[in-house]
Every structure is written in C-alpha cells, then in structure tokens.
Nucleic acid binder design. Structure first.
Lengths: 235, 235
DNA sequence: ATAATAGTGTCTTTTAGACAATATCAC
DNA sequence: GTGATATTGTCTAAAAGACACTATTAT
C-alpha cells in the first residue's frame, strides 16, 4: 500500500501543472499588477493572471521565466521572481485536473509601451482596483497571496529594491514601501534606518537633482538580503 | 500563442503531482524527522520523506493529510500541516515527470509505539543526523526547506505550540524553541516574554509538579497566531 | 536545610518614533 | 531671500537582555 499509485495508475491520473504569475510594478507611486484577458472558454473575457502550462523540458522556475518573457514583454528587465505556493483544488479548472504553482514577480518599472506584441494582451491594474475585480479560476486567491507575501517580506528583506530601477534614491525606495503598505512613512526615520543598515545600499557617488530641494544620493542595491532587525511598519 | 498548450498537448504532457511531508516532532528534547525507507527502485533501501501521489478526488491539503495518516499513524493526533513549496526539476524522479508539493507537519509528540502497522515503514531520526544522510530524490532539499521554515516561523508565530501536547508548561514550550534553534534561551526572559503576550497562552488553572521545584502552571494554546513584536533568537 | 525549578523585579543598553535642526538645491 | 527636499541630530518611551531575587516544591 505504500507508494502504491505507480505504473498504470500514474498514467490514468491525467494531471497537469501550470504556473501563474503575480507580476507587480510601481507606476505613478501606486502598486500595479499585470492582468491578461482570457480569450477562450472558460472565463472568456474575464481578467486572469498571466501564466501557462509547464513544458516537459523545463523546471518550474524556467516555466515562470518563460511565461514572464512571452506574456509580459518584461524579458529584458532585471525582474525578481520567486515561488509563492501551489494550488490544487479539484475543481479549480473546469477543463480538468490542473495544478498551479503561483509565482511572484517584481519588476523595476514598466517596459516600453512600444514593447512586444504579446504585451498587448496585458494591462497594468492598480492592486487596489484588482482586489475587487472578479478574476478567472482561483487567481484572486493567488493575487491575494502574492500581495501578502510582498507586504510581509518588505519588513525583513531587501526585496523593495526589486521594485526600484538599478539606481535609485532613498526617497524612491521609501515610495515603494509607502505604495506597498499603503501608508506614509517618516522620511527622516526611514532614511536613518535604511542608510544605517550596512550592506543594504551601495553609494554610487552620484546624485540626482529633481526640481527643488537638495539633490539625493543615488544608490544601487547591495548584497544584503535579510534585514535584521526588521523594518517595522510604523504606526 | 497565448495559453497555447491545451487540448492534445495537455494529454501528451504526462505530468504527475505528489506530496512529500517533512514531519517533525520533539523526542527527548531533540527535534526528529520521520523518514521512510524505499522498498523499490529507484533508490531502493534509501531513506525518503513519507509521501505519495495526489489522487484525482482530493486537493493538495487532503492528499497531505491522507499520506500523513496512512504512512505515519499520526492520524488521530492534532497535527499542524502547512504547505512548504513545490519542486519541479525535470529529472528529479527518474521514472518520469513528477512534481512534488512539499508539506511541513508538526506533531505534538510521537504516537504510540504500538501504533498502526503502516508506521513500521517509518522511523524517527534526529534532524542533526538526517542532515548528513543521503535521501532519495530531492528530499534532502525539501527537508532543509522545512527546517528553515520552522526555524524562521518560531520567531514571529505561535507555531511552537504545535510541537507541544494539548496542555504544556512554559518550560516545555521553551524546550521546543531550544531544540529547534539549537541554543539555550534564558528561562526568565523567555517566561516574561511569553507570559506577557496576551492571547498566546491560556491558563488552565492547573499545575504540574515534576520532581523538585515549584510546580509549573499548565497552559493550552490561545488564539493568537502572529507574534508581534517577534521573539528574537537572543544571543 | 538544601537543591531544584517556577516566576517576578530591576537595571542597562538598544531601538523605535517624534520631531528639531541643518544642508543644498530651484526660483 | 523663500520654498522644497535631503540628511543628520536629539529626545523620549519602549523593548531586549543580563541577572538578582522571591516562590514553591522534593528530599
């Protein structure tokens, strides 16, 4: 009885594995998620997360990276990709038994509007609006899990830099936190905490002047990935 | 091209989904993991994590719960089960394309030695020893991920109570932390921190006397699941 | 009494959070 | 100069960690 389901049983199972991506980016100081629109049944016309089936010659991470490039035109950008969790309700797909591995992808800005034609299927939706949209399959749950993950992980990791361009200011980084957490942070305490964490930011030596005000130092992300102690979401 | 792999492509993929469990329990103040021994090829005779294929009429959590009951004889106990992550390297199983969803299970003690016959396949191994054992498939990676998860999650959650019996003392709970983190904690600071977190522990009103010393208050787990601020692994 | 464990109090150092003050720009 | 943003400093309240002390048992 132990590990009994092999040989013919395995063939008759007819299981399928897909990846679905929660792709996030900051646009106009608001967190956005990339949604596609289903073109066929089931759920024709309904928005869904980009994704697709895992092919026989690729692992899960590779499938996620391929779908990201194919469906979003984000291939050339430095995108952080990490696995979320898997979804396997029996009836989550009316076509049959399809498991989905959810992925979280954080893009450092949006690609050129003149990007690949594949991106025409997709659009960026503010996450506040997407929460109330009905999504195909169980994608609303996957999206919620992705948002939970990124909100929690900002506290104890350097993940926020993945939503910034290669070189950024402390104010930009703070903007990421404010957008993801949906609340303002004290610029002075934030600056002191971030700048006082060795290894988190690397000073490029250059500055950026943006309208009025003292020019801001330009940093790029350092090697540090774990923030300890964590950066608390202050009151 | 979008979502193109459907209909016949899907049938020809021949993918299979399994669950594999990292089952942990505290035995003699040491953290142990439950291992089975493979009885057939591949990896015949090599230790592996308990697990098996997901059936067509059950979701992932149900498959994990069923395997837990079937293979470990822990069915009747109150076991905490949560999903870890999924594993999908192309060649992770030489028999074909098998994806695995890893699960973490925390048992409040070990079942009766006189438990079900299924448990005869399995044995409890101290995690320190299991780390150097060669395990079948990629189960060493799954085990490492499970240990990472439980070590990290003790800091910011009430998960440690899942490794305690229904009623326990503060010293027992501290023993869980010390076993999982592999370092001693200050009993006085631990007690003050734990007892000072509202909702974490519920006083049963009874005490337990164990050899010499003042009797310890018996608690059961409260509703609180998230510890904030987290319990830091002190120096 | 002595040893052992449970639980409380106290002190010091560190940190978070509020916010004043200074630096450097555009105008 | 004014106004704006960046960056540093200062103060206070809270928390962490070290550890003395009290409480309650077995022997």
């Amino acid at each position: 009885m132990h590990r009994s389901l092999w040989a013919e049983d395995r063939r008759s199972l007819a299981q399928t594995v897909a990846v679905d991506l929660v792709v996030l980016a900051l646009i106009d100081a608001r967190l956005h998620v990339l949604l596609a629109t289903r073109e066929s049944e089931p759920f024709a016309g309904v928005p869904e997360l980009p994704g697709g089936l895992v092919r026989s010659d690729e692992n899960l991470d590779e499938a996620a990276a391929r779908e990201l490039a194919e469906e979003t035109g984000l291939g050339r950008l430095r995108v952080h990709v990490e696995q979320l969790r898997s979804y396997g309700e029996v009836d989550r797909d009316p076509r049959g038994r399809v498991f989905s591995v959810g992925y979280l992808a954080l893009a450092p800005g949006v690609p050129d509007p003149a990007a690949s034609g594949a991106a025409a299927h997709t659009r960026w939706v503010p996450v506040d609006d997407a929460g109330s949209l009905p999504l195909a399959f169980d994608h609303a749950q996957i999206l919620a899990d992705g948002l939970d993950r990124v909100r929690a992980k900002l506290e104890y990791s350097a993940l926020a830099t993945a939503l910034c361009p290669a070189e950024f200011t402390v104010a930009e980084l703070r903007g990421v936190y404010e957008a993801v957490w949906g609340r303002p942070l004290d610029p002075r305490n934030f600056h002191r905490k971030i700048a006082g964490t060795p290894g988190l930011l690397i000073d490029t030596g250059r500055v950026r002047r943006e309208g009025a005000g003292r020019p801001a130092t330009l940093y790029r992300a350092g090697d540090l990935t774990v923030l300890s102690p964590p950066l608390s979401r202050e009151a």
